[in-house]
Design a protein around this nucleic acid. Structure first.
Lengths: 195, 195
DNA sequence: CGCGTTTGCCAACACTCGTTGGCTAGACTC
DNA sequence: GAGTCTAGCCAACGAGTGTTGGCAAACGCG
C-alpha cells in the first residue's frame, strides 16, 4: 500500500495546510478537520497518508537553522551575521514558529527545540572559540536572546517589537549576540563548569 | 447567591490547583476536571464559583511586575537591578509562567502580556530617560531578553540555561538590559519614530 | 478489455471536554 | 425549632476531537 505520484498533490496540500495551521494555532488548536478542510481533502485521508496527527506534526516540525560557517566572517561581525541569518531564517520558514507555538505546552516540541540549539548552534560556537566547555552555555545565552526576539516579534506580536524594521532589530541585538558568542564572561558569570 | 466564608477554603483550593495546572500545562491542556480533582472538589463547583473556565483562567493570570523605582538606583546598576528583580519576581510567582505557557496560542493571554510591558515597564523607562517616544521601543527590547530568559529557563528548560545559577544569569544579561534601558541607540537602530 | 490497486468520501465510533440541572445534607437566621 | 439558603455531589447533555472501516469511482497494468 505504497502511495503513488497521483496522490502527491493531495499529500503536499495537506502538508502545506498543516504547516500553516500549526504555525498559526499550535498543535492542540489546529484540528485535523481544519487542516483537511484547508487542503480541500477529507480528514480520513490525513490519517491514511500520515498515520496520525502527531506524525503529521512531526513532519511539519522539522527545522534546521542552516547556520553558515561563522568562522568565515570577521570576528567583530559574527554577532551581526548571526542575528541577520536567524531573522532571515525564520521569516522564510515557519518551522520555528510551529515549534515555538507548541513547545510551551508540549514536551516533544520542547525537546526538538533543545536539540536544535544543543546540536546545531553549540558545535558552531565550540569551533569558533575552541572552548567546548563554554559552548553550551554560550549557545543557551544566544538562545535566550534569539528566541526572545522571535517570541515577541512573531508570536506575541508586541507592538514596539513588531514596529521595528528588521535592520533596527539586528542593530540592537547584534552586540548582545556578539557578546554571548565570544565576549569575555562577566564577573560572577563563569562559563565553564570548574570549581 | 453570594458565597459565604464557609466555601472560602474550597474556592482557594480551586485557585491554587488552577494556578499550578495552568502554569504546568497551559490553558488548553489543563482541564477543569483535573483542576477540580487536584483541589478535591467536584468540577461543577468550579463553574458555580468562577463562572467558566475562561473566567477562572483570568483570575489566575493576573500578574504584576511590581517594578521598584528604577530612578532610585545608581544609573550604572539599573540593568543589574532590573534583571535581578525580574528573576526574583517570576521565581516566586507563577503568574508569568501561566501567561507565557498559553500566550503562544491564546490571544487573550498574549494581549495581557502586551499590556504588562506597555503599561508597567514602558512608563518606568520613560521616567528614567525622559524620552517618552523611545520608551516603548526600549521596553520591547527589554521584553525580548527578559521573556527569552524566562522561556528558555522555566518553560523550555534548555539544559545550559537551567544549569546556570541565578547570579550567573544576572551577570550575563544585566549588561544587555542596561543597554536596552538607557544605552545609546546603535547605528541603524534609531529609537524614535521620526524620519 | 479485465482485474487489482489506489484514491477519495461518507458515516460512525469512542472518547474527552466544558457546562448544566437537580438532588441531599448541612448551616444559618429569626 | 421551623424555614431558608448554601455547599457539595451525581448524572447527564451537547459539542468537538482523533481515528477507523467500508464502499464507489478512477487509475494502471496485463
Amino acid at each position: 500500500m505504497a502511495f503513488t505520484d497521483r496522490s502527491l498533490p493531495a499529500r503536499e496540500a495537506i502538508l502545506d495546510a498543516a504547516r500553516a495551521r500549526f504555525a498559526a494555532d499550535g498543535y492542540d488548536r489546529a484540528t485535523v478537520r481544519a487542516i483537511a478542510a484547508d487542503a480541500g481533502i477529507d480528514p480520513s485521508m490525513v490519517m491514511r497518508y500520515f498515520g496520525s496527527k502527531r506524525q503529521l506534526f512531526a513532519r511539519t516540525a522539522e527545522f534546521d537553522l542552516r547556520l553558515p560557517d561563522l568562522t568565515a566572517a570577521p570576528r567583530q561581525e559574527i554577532g551581526h551575521a548571526l542575528a541577520t541569518h536567524l531573522l532571515d531564517r525564520w521569516e522564510d520558514d515557519n518551522g520555528l514558529q510551529i515549534l515555538l507555538r507548541t513547545a510551551t505546552t508540549d514536551d516533544d516540541a520542547a525537546e526538538r527545540m533543545r536539540s536544535i540549539f544543543a546540536g546545531q548552534l553549540a558545535p558552531q560556537i565550540a569551533a569558533l572559540t575552541g572552548d567546548r566547555a563554554s559552548a553550551a552555555t554560550r549557545a543557551g545565552l544566544v538562545a535566550t536572546q534569539a528566541l526572545g526576539v522571535a517570541l515577541c516579534r512573531y508570536v506575541l506580536r508586541l507592538p514596539p517589537v513588531v514596529a521595528m524594521s528588521r535592520a533596527e532589530v539586528v542593530a540592537w541585538i547584534a552586540p548582545t549576540i556578539q557578546r554571548y558568542l565570544v565576549g569575555k564572561p562577566p564577573d560572577g558569570g563563569r562559563v565553564d563548569t570548574g570549581p
